[in-house]
């Protein structure tokens, strides 16, 4: 059994929800996530990638019970997360933690670092004050901060240090599963490297499972075992990381990979990236929501929404024409090897 099973999850928000819009009929529903399903095995990392409006963060917020789902279930160790109460809920709160994107706003500015880290200990454990203090020092050490940092306020620390404090707070209760919502997006690359190293070390040491939410494909590729690509609230493709990056089956995944500027000059230019703009999630296109931007789209795509098909044990894709995408890539590859053989020949 997987540690976390998300099944058919949907979350709709009401926009314009006041009394007057309701009477005028201008009330709108925003379908932030639609029918999202995935599983995370213990000790594994699932990457959730997508652009703005994809609904990545909403998925994390439903799992942590910040939002109630409109439809579908989240099961953790087999139990429906949104039906938990009492001590089961306490236990869930302890074993599932979250780290947020902006380190500057994710800590209470009026609490010293030590007090922030100690707070979950105070609520969930019956450690004495001295024991809590010791545990805080341990945690600070785990994330490579100095014990002196306990007496600092958040505004006295740098972004990278604050993010480590967030991680320490998340670790305080020995969690099994951490949701990382864009944890390095606000950081410089050299600082990002430290946080990523730390996350990998911690995963190994404490056998943690991660849900890693990010728009940064490079980071996702580095850290995740599996990747799910989201577009306008739906998962369009899911596969083991290596396969997804080498052989994308969904046109959106393909376009997204081509759009990422590679830190290697002379590589493939982004000319075959995605055209057009991301439609508003308030009014997603009919049929396949990607069809207006898709070069493979046919009439069928504007009517029928493709289901998330399971191709083999590991890969799922939601596209009527994934075979054409795969065939195109095979062609390109053979062309590439062909031309490189020719180049070698002329040398």
């Amino acid at each position: 059994m997987a540690l976390l099973e998300v099944d058919g999850l949907s979350k709709h928000f009401v926009v314009n929800g006041g009394v007057v819009p309701r009477l005028l009929g201008t009330r709108k529903e925003l379908q932030a996530i639609r029918n999202v399903s995935f599983e995370i095995e213990a000790g594994q990392t699932l990457g959730l990638v997508g652009e703005s409006g994809a609904g990545k963060s909403t998925v994390g917020n439903v799992i942590t019970r910040i939002y109630e789902p409109t439809n579908g279930t989240v099961r953790y160790n087999g139990a429906n997360v949104h039906e938990l109460s009492g001590s089961d809920l306490q236990a869930y709160r302890q074993s599932v933690q979250m780290v947020f994107q902006d380190p500057y706003t994710s800590l209470d500015p009026r609490y010293k670092i030590g007090r922030t880290i100690a707070e979950p200990l105070k609520i969930h454990t019956d450690l004495s004050k001295a024991e809590r203090k010791e545990r805080v020092s341990e945690l600070l050490e785990t994330v490579n901060l100095e014990p002196e940092h306990r007496d600092r306020y958040p505004h006295e620390l740098s972004g990278g240090q604050l993010q480590r404090v967030s991680i320490a707070t998340a670790l305080a209760l020995d969690p099994e599963f951490i949701i990382l919502d864009e944890p390095v997006s606000a950081l410089d690359v050299s600082v990002q490297a430290r946080i990523l190293n730390l996350l990998m070390e911690l995963q190994e040491e404490y056998e943690l499972s991660y849900l890693f939410i990010s728009h940064n494909l490079g980071v996702i590729k580095h850290l995740c075992d599996h990747v799910a690509v989201m577009y306008l609230g739906e998962i369009v493709e899911q596969a083991p990381t290596g396969e997804l990056f080498e052989n994308p089956h969904h046109p959106y995944t393909e376009g997204l990979l081509n759009s990422v500027p590679q830190p290697q000059p002379g590589g493939s230019k982004s000319t075959d990236g995605l055209t057009g703009e991301i439609p508003s999630a308030l009014n997603p296109p009919a049929g396949c929501s990607f069809h207006p931007r898709c070069s493979y789209a046919t009439d069928q795509c504007s009517v029928d929404a493709p289901p998330l098909e399971t191709l083999d044990s590991e890969r799922k894709v939601a596209c009527h024409h994934w075979d054409a995408v795969v065939a195109d890539q095979a062609d390109e590859r053979s062309e590439l090897t062909h031309s490189s053989v020719q180049n070698d020949g002329t040398k």
Partner: peptide
């Protein structure tokens, strides 16, 4: 900007 839009702007 989102990556797909970033790529367009860079082009």
């Amino acid at each position: 900007l989102d990556v797909s839009i970033q790529a367009q702007i860079l082009d």
